[in-house]
Amino acid sequence: MPTYSLTVNGRARTVEAPADMPLLWVLRDRLQLFGTKYGCGIGACGACTVHVNGQAVRSCSLPVAAVAAARITTIEGLSRDGAHPAQQAWIEEDVAQCGFCQPGMIMEAAALLRARPQPTDGEIDGAFASHICRCGTYNRLRAAVHRAAELGGKR
C-alpha cells in the first residue's frame, strides 16, 4: 500500500492508504480529523469541503494521490479555537441547527471571503448553490457570510 506525505493544517503527516482512497477518508479514518463530514460521497452536498492550496474542494471525490504535494486545511485547522471571522459570524448569527453541514459551509465561506472579501448575495448563492443544509439554515448562513465580511474587514 502506498505511503503519502501530506501537509494537513500546517503539519506534515504520513499516511498509508490506497491511491484511490478519497481525502475525506484519509482525514477521518487515518488522521482522526472528524470535523470533515461524509454526506453523499459524490460531491453533491458539500459536507466534506476542505481547502486544498486555499481552494474549497470536495474531499469525498478527491483521491489522496492527487493531493500528496498539496497544502490541506480542514475545519480543525481554519483557526485557533474558532477565531476565523466566518466562525465568529456563524456563532453570532446562530446559524447551526444540527450543525452537520456547517464545517463544510464554513470552509466554503472562508474560501469565498478570501476571493471576494465583500460578496454580494448573488455571489454567496453561487458559492453555496451545491451545499445542502437539511435544516434549512440558509438565511442565517447568508447573513453570517455578510457579517464575516464585516468582521474580516476590521482585521
Binding site: 477521518r28 479514518d29 482522526q32 480529523l33 472528524f34 470535523g35 470533515t36 463530514k37 461524509y38 480542514t74 475545519i75 480543525e76 481554519l78 483557526s79 479555537d81 474558532g82 466566518a86 466562525q87 456563524w90 456563532i91 453570532e92 446562530d94 447551526a96 450543525g99 452537520f100 456547517q102 464545517p103 464554513i106
Partner: peptide
C-alpha cells in the same frame, strides 16, 4: 438565546455518531 454548543460546531469539535474510533 444562541446555541450552547455553537462554538463546538463551528470548530468541528461537535461529536456526531460517526466521530468515534
Amino acid at each position: 438565546t444562541r446555541r450552547t454548543d455553537g462554538r463546538k460546531i463551528v470548530t468541528g469539535r461537535a461529536q456526531y455518531g460517526l466521530d468515534v474510533k
